[in-house]
Amino acid sequence: MPADVELRTDSADSVESVRLLAAYEAELVSLGVVLNHGWAGGVTPDQLRPPYGAWLVGWRGDEAVACGGVRLLSPDVAEVKRMYVDPSARGAGLARLLVARLEAEAMALGASVARLDTGRDMAPAVALYRSSGYREVEDYNGNPDAGWWFEKDLRSPS
């Protein structure tokens, strides 16, 4: 676990969150992804705060190095959105910690199922989600930027 990073609740439109999301989108574009979505994939900051969602930012000292959110799609289904870890913080388990905390946030909102999507060429993300207990499902949201869709029963141990 990345002992030097603290995950804190924040707003998805805070200065640091916006900076991290811009870095995330720039990285996607550098990988050849043509982005078809608006802010955070059509999700508004209000959907990523209680009582409909949550947003976390990972801090290493005074530097924001990760972010991610969860929003309710229905009373029992939550969707993980815009998970990003800065390259300087990768490889220490922060993404896995972020997934687990977002799942906990989803459960606190009342969800028993978590869904997410990721890009076609995001092999590390696909591996992370599979190893975290997610299983591949059919396209549930019509996201044109996605190539993989996953779901996890939050009531079952991974």
Rank of each mutant, 00 (worst) to 15 (best):
K152S: 07
A23K: 10
Y52R: 02
S158V: 09
H37C: 01
R8H: 11
L31T: 04
E136A: 09
A78G: 14
D62S: 11
E27G: 14
L31E: 09
E16P: 00
D86P: 01
Y129L: 03
E151K: 04
E25D: 15
R96K: 14
W149E: 06
V85I: 13
A146W: 00
R90W: 09
S74C: 05
A100Q: 10
R120L: 15
K152Y: 12
V29G: 06
R82C: 08
R120D: 14
L7A: 05
G110H: 15
D121W: 00
G58P: 00
N143A: 09
D86Q: 10
E25P: 01
A114Y: 08
V18I: 15
N36M: 03
E27N: 09
A111K: 09
G38C: 07
T44G: 12
M83D: 08
L48I: 08
P124C: 07
S74Q: 10
E27S: 11
G133Y: 09
M83H: 07
G93W: 10
V34C: 07
P51S: 13
G58N: 07
W59Q: 01
A23Q: 11
V15R: 06
L7C: 03
S17T: 06
S112I: 10
G53K: 04
A127S: 12
P75F: 14
V43R: 02
